[in-house]
């Protein structure tokens, strides 16, 4: 519906009139997102929009089929938002091409890549596939860059206003509200998560790179021998030789196979934490950050503080 509205500008009066009738001021934006975290973020900014997420919390966003239903959803989108930095390179370009929808092509105002507006970590000048699945543009798992959501919120607000000017004041209001609330949460989190500073982790993929960077934690080893390469026995063997003092916990995500983490746990007796990859259904982005920090605190801090 919305594409008709923009098209009408340079088109016949009849089409314009038709589009005007269809698109009453209260029409809902159709938004396509690649991952559920962007659905959560956009819901706070555009609560009236119809938002469709291509993946669920249980799916690895690197491995998604460019399936027909996604092309159909992409075709109807007025706007799309993805993590970017090549995270979705195996399927998103196919959806963009097959959808034949101008609004979701790269370079359009209505195609937003979160990683374009976030200070990227682990960028590389030289990338070779022998290094595993790494991206020149940096680590694409930016949903945990909580300290940068405010600048992302500014971008989203501006884009929403441009795409749907009729509702610009609403987006302004929602954006301001989101940022005020987020700032409050940031203050709360930095106090609450202070005991996590300096904690060392063995991870499974660099999924929480931005979270650790923000909280002052460190991933000292990875269950994956190389990014995106599944754990091998020989690599896991080498991890058992890690000095027990060099890490506090083993972390993996809900969508991942738990066996490698369990295996290392049996050898080292270090606790395991399963963290969410993204928001669960209906969860907001700040609730996800709350959950992640609580789960880390539960295992890493609470037992010690209860000891004396």
């Amino acid at each position: 519906m919305h594409s008709k509205l923009t098209f009408s500008k340079c088109s016949l009066a009849m089409i314009a009139a038709g589009a005007a009738i269809i698109s009453s001021p209260s029409f809902a934006l159709n938004i396509f997102v690649c991952e559920p975290e962007w659905e959560a973020l956009l819901t706070s900014h555009a609560p009236n929009a119809t938002i469709y997420s291509a993946t669920t919390a249980k799916q690895d966003p690197h491995y998604v089929q460019a399936r027909p239903s996604l092309i159909a959803k992409m075709r109807q989108a007025d706007m799309a938002m993805c993590s970017g930095a090549e995270l979705e390179v195996g399927w998103l370009p196919m959806l963009q091409a097959r959808s034949s929808n101008r609004a979701v092509q790269d370079g359009a105002q209505s195609m937003i890549y979160a990683s374009d507006f976030i200070g990227m970590l682990d960028t590389h000048d030289h990338v070779d596939r022998s290094m595993g699945d790494i991206h020149a543009a940096g680590n694409p798992h930016v949903q945990f860059a909580a300290n940068q959501m405010i600048s992302l919120s500014h971008v989203i607000t501006e884009r929403l206003q441009n795409i749907d000017p009729d509702n610009a004041p609403l987006y302004q209001e929602n954006g301001t509200q989101f940022r005020t609330h987020w700032q409050q949460k940031m203050n709360e989190w930095s106090e609450k998560a202070a005991p996590l500073r300096g904690k060392q982790v063995v991870g499974y993929h660099e999924t929480y790179r931005y979270l650790y960077d923000w909280l002052g934690m460190k991933q000292v080893a990875d269950l994956e021998p190389k990014p995106g390469v599944s754990p091998t026995t020989s690599h896991l063997q080498s991890l058992t030789k890690l000095d027990a003092n060099t890490f506090d916990v083993i972390v993996y995500s809900t969508h991942q196979n738990q066996r490698p983490a369990n295996w290392l746990h049996e050898f080292t007796d270090k606790p395991i934490i399963q963290l969410p990859l993204t928001v669960s259904k209906g969860q907001s982005l700040d609730e996800m950050v709350d959950q992640v920090i609580d789960e880390l605190l539960d295992v890493l801090v609470t037992p010690e503080s209860e000891a004396p």
């Binding site: 027909p68 239903s69 092309i71 159909a72 959803k73 075709r75 109807q76 097959r98 959808s99 034949s100």
Partner: peptide, 12 residues
């Protein structure tokens, strides 16, 4: 020439 219809079911 092809067209994808604006429906939830993929129709091309």
């Amino acid at each position: 020439a092809s067209i994808v219809l604006p429906t939830d079911m993929y129709i091309k």
